[in-house]
Design a binder for these strands. Structure first.
Lengths: 217, 217
DNA sequence: CTATGTGAACAGCTTCACAGCG
DNA sequence: CGCTGTGAAGCTGTTCACATAG
């Protein structure tokens, strides 16, 4: 329903990679970059880079390339990370706490606003010694989402409750879920889910390694 | 290097999802499943399911469907997880320790054999109270990989050292890397890398949510 | 009648190749 | 000249539709 129509999903994924690479280039005091350079760094053809960027506008200068700082700003705007997104994390297990500690969060435009868990033993505890966020009861989840106007969630709960937690969150207004539970979430149109399943990723490696060699000894 | 030739990468990704779903179905005492049922659970067309499976053999019975237990075994064999893969984890930070604690590892055919870190303060410590694995110095990494014949690695080190650690591991025999560092690893042909970048995933959500609505309030 | 396996049609993404601009 | 932006071509992956098997 709108801005993303006609734009290939793979192109959007690469946008994030371009942004990451550009931020690295900026730190080396490089002011301009060509599609060829960007492509080589990411193992993508230069034509691909140009086409991806051209979906969103004319950002380059013929004969010169792309202005690094400028393109960073453009990409942030396209991806929506020039604004700050409030994020709720549900599930304060090992993985949840590790993700919370990840400092890159805020720098990228995401602000962890609340953390919920169903374990009474965890509720009320501060997550990180130097963070003031305390774990709240999962029964308050919907109310928190509504009152804080939260649109994004990170889901690190066990698989058997993931769907019902997701339903609750969506009902309360969440529009995007980063799901770490090993299950296929069903969500209504307009809601986006991205899933990360450690086992799935390892299986891909296992397949590829097994395909080119004898396999594990 | 052969087995994967002509098979679409997306099909292989879905194989893992089929396997996950089948394991869930088995626990509900379902013995047979159709491509339509599998597809509905995963939001994929039935034709897609059949085509994916048909890349690897004729596993179904016309008029009946697929035998759940049977197909699980077939998929495990194809993915290479009917054998046990030794895995080394490098980087015992928050994320690394969280991944270690993940119990699904062993159940899926992956055995965490060694953990390395460069922080002298961590070396020698047991990771988990009930695990006997101790953190070893990263200078021993190559030797560990060689002597244990390790082929898979999980990389949870800071971005600025990720490439050099990867080089070391590949030199020592690692063929597949699950990379959590926010950087594009360059690896020689035959070596597989799968990357998981939290920021990238969140940006995808931000884009999609921003595309269908006004964005965050 | 149900459900698989598969060639053929279709759709979508990537690469090519070049016109045009600095 | 170098490099972008882009129609056209090429390729890869998905869906259709049906012959075939139980």
């Amino acid at each position: 329903m709108g801005k993303a129509d006609g734009i290939p999903a793979p192109a959007v994924r690469r946008l994030s990679l371009y942004l990451r690479q550009l931020e690295a280039l900026r730190d080396t005091n490089l002011h301009t970059v060509s599609s060829k350079q960007l492509g080589q760094a990411l193992r993508i053809t230069d034509a691909q880079v140009r086409k991806d960027l051209a979906y969103f506008g004319q950002f380059g200068q013929p004969g010169i390339g792309y202005a690094v700082e400028d393109l960073i700003a453009k990409l942030r705007n396209i991806l929506g990370t020039d604004r700050t997104w409030k994020v709720v994390l549900v599930g304060a297990g090992n993985l949840g706490r590790a993700l919370l500690a990840y400092r890159g969060f805020k720098r990228k435009g995401f602000e962890l606003t609340a953390v919920c868990d169903s374990d009474p033993g965890k509720i009320g505890r501060p997550l990180d010694p130097d963070e003031q966020i305390r774990i709240q009861d999962i029964s308050a989840l919907a109310e928190i989402i509504r009152s804080e106007n939260i649109r994004l969630a990170v889901l690190t709960v066990p698989a058997d409750v993931a769907q019902s937690v997701a339903d609750t969150m969506i009902e309360a207004g969440v529009m995007g879920i980063l799901n770490f539970a090993p299950i296929s979430l069903h969500v209504p149109p307009g809601v986006t889910v991205t899933s990360v399943d450690l086992a799935v990723h390892l299986e891909q490696l296992s397949f590829n390694v097994g395909a080119s060699a004898a396999g594990p000894p």
